[in-house]
């Protein structure tokens, strides 16, 4: 058993255990903190799989930004009327759906990709004629791939982010006076 396999096993156990805690802990803030552990363990898996840049982007965006955003939302939506029990009444159905999804995926992936061994030291093939990256998955090679071949998708993605930004501002913004009067009239009638 190679060292990277041992590290990946430990990270897998940590990922699954903390993900179970995310979906089962009754405290909402604890769920967000367990999500940090899960996302950090997945970033470690990316590192073991030689996807260095993706791992650091995962740490920056997910652990840094998304979890902070989730914590903000949890604090802003906390009210005395909100129930403390965080789990719904359809928990058996949800457990069945989760287990059957896992079962189907595991059976399909096992029957399709059994026996394939990843070579974590190999270089990419040279069929594209590109200059060989010195190391696979580091910042330089990923950046060259994004800004040469994937640049159009990158620009479209920036437009999507701008649209999401404007949409979030519009949706969560203060309701205009006219809408408020209409809502009051509709509630009173």
């Amino acid at each position: 058993m190679t060292p990277e396999l041992v590290v990946f096993w430990l990270l897998s156990v940590l990922t699954v255990a903390s993900a179970v805690m995310v979906v089962s802990t009754p405290h909402v803030v604890h769920a967000a903190l367990w999500l940090v552990v899960t996302l950090g363990a997945v970033a470690g898996c990316f590192l073991v799989l030689t996807a260095e840049f993706v791992a650091w982007v995962q740490v920056l965006i997910y652990v840094g930004a998304v979890v902070v955003l989730l914590l903000f939302a949890l604090m802003l939506t906390r009210s005395p009327a909100s129930t403390t029990g965080a789990t719904s009444r359809n928990r058996p159905v949800a457990a069945f759906a989760g287990f059957s999804t896992f079962g189907v995926l595991a059976v399909v992936l096992t029957s399709g990709f059994r026996g394939i061994v990843l070579d974590l030291d190999s270089q990419p093939d040279q069929l594209g004629g590109a200059a060989p990256p010195e190391r696979i998955g580091d910042t330089r090679s990923v950046g060259e791939a994004i800004f040469t071949h994937w640049v159009l998708a990158f620009e479209v993605l920036s437009v999507i982010l701008l649209a999401a930004l404007i949409g979030a501002i519009v949706v969560s913004g203060r309701v205009r006076d006219r809408d408020r009067q209409e809502a009051a009239a509709g509630g009173g009638s």
Partner: peptide, 15 residues
Amino acid sequence: SALFGIGVYGVLSRR
């Protein structure tokens, strides 16, 4: 796939 199943459970079971 395990992570995906846990995520499905979380989406369906959380209030």
